[in-house]
Amino acid sequence: MSFATRGFSGRRREPDTRLPPGQTLVQDWPVLSAGPTPHVDTADWEFTIRDETGAEHRWSWDELLALGVEDVTVDIHCVTHWSRLDMDWRGVSLDKVFENVESEHEYVMAHSYGGYTTNIPLEDLLDGKAWIATEADGGPLDPEHGGPARLLVPHLYFWKSAKWLRGLTMMPDNDPGFWEQYGYHLYGDPWKEERYW
């Protein structure tokens, strides 16, 4: 249905095939969140995975880092139309976190300090596709960007990369999280522009 708006030419630039439709490249790092930024000390930080039996797998900050921190360079795409390319992160692969977790459930609800939630299929967190990120741009993750640790699921819109991560709960169905209940897409593939439902 698109038509040209009179007089608009846009900024001339080389088309970038790494930018999903509707996205604009930025060099800075915009911040978006629904409420105040929680400030969590790594000494108090704890991460939990709860399975369908109610069993909880827990990691302290040091225990998480002991699983092995790796360098990750990925592109990130925010539903509010900005993208960053080749962004440097460090974090722990969720494959390592899930190594000893047994579950029949195929969906995960991520929970944050501060109450934020977001739903993700388990398969989107495994096989080298997702991390618990503790560093970005060469330093510890700032609280306003989700520090001390956030999810990093770069192949989905960035609201799925929950800030201030505190745990994952296995769930049988793809129940909507916080923004998903407010009209954002259940899955959020930037290449299909799955922004809203």
Binding site: S2, F3, A4, T5, F8, S9, G10, R11, G22, T24, T80, H81, R195
Partner: peptide
């Protein structure tokens, strides 16, 4: 979200 389209099909969206 507001979207503008240029004559050559180039588009830019902003919230």
């Amino acid at each position: 979200d507001l979207r503008l389209t240029a004559p050559d099909g180039y588009q830019a969206s902003r919230s």
